[in-house]
Amino acid sequence: MRDLHLPLNQTQRVRLEAALHELQTLAPAAASAAAVTVADNIAVNHEDNILKGHGTTDQDGEVVATLCGVVERVNKLVYVRTLRARYKPEVGDIIVGRVIEIAPKRWRLEINFSQDAVLMLSSMNLPDGIQRRRTAVDELNMRSIFEENDVVCAEVRGFQHDGSLHLQARSQKYGKLQRGQLLTVPAYLVKRRKLHFHHLEQYDVDLILGCNGFIWVGEHVVVREIADLKEDEQKLSAEAETFTPIETRRHICRLANAVRVLSALGFTLTVELIIQTAEASISSNVEINDMLGAEFYVQTAEREAKRRGDLLGKKR
């Protein structure tokens, strides 16, 4: 299986296979029936005029898939939802990206899309928080806001007519991310939700699930009001020298490893599941570095199978 090249012993292999098989039986039969590969025919009723969406094409009057994925039907629309593909942005998505270039008045960000995204200087809040025209001085000082290789959180603003993707960061919650880990997972594992920023109070950790499959696990930062900013500035410079406490660092690593395990097993990443996995590792006294060992993978798969089984049982 993908990303999963583990030194499993005989018992672990059997257990993992059993758990994965369990998951397969638990999945609704419709899901596996709707799976298509490239050039498969999609059965449609031609009498009601259907709309062909993403991943489909017309060949001799038949609707044919051009991707591997799952057929979804919404009223008249028929499309193929891909599993392992690059991120497809939608307006309003919260994403995490990495700055790769500073161009005039803009930053270019790598966001796992087919092109680099553009964050304009004019579409983000300045650190002093004042709304004003961006001057040439601001343009020269762009590196003081984001440098190359910085990790940035932003929102998808929209597509320009030439097809390039524009981002915006017009709030205090967006901006540079520091003191943490960036994890990249396949984009299909992150579902669009109302909330993508999570503050896990018990760990004092921020978790950002970017829709593009970039996940940030970092030390919690207090979002300051603009008015307080000036007063805080002195504090901030003093704070910069203090380090993240070792306890928080451990929590960051533990959560990051939980994300790694879950994404390698191909489970949808939700906050609840990530916390559960981290909690389970604590309660069964698994060291942080042992979380990436074979035994914990098997345990996680088994736990997930049990959880989904319980959920299904409740529904019935």
């Binding site: 596996s32 590969t37 591997c68 594992l189 097993l265 191909g266 489970f267 949808t268």
Partner: peptide
């Protein structure tokens, strides 16, 4: 090849849940 791809797609979808 299509068998391999279909098998893989089904597995990914099932695990995703």
């Amino acid at each position: 090849i299509r068998e391999v791809l279909l098998e893989n797609t089904k597995q990914l979808e099932c695990q995703r849940g």
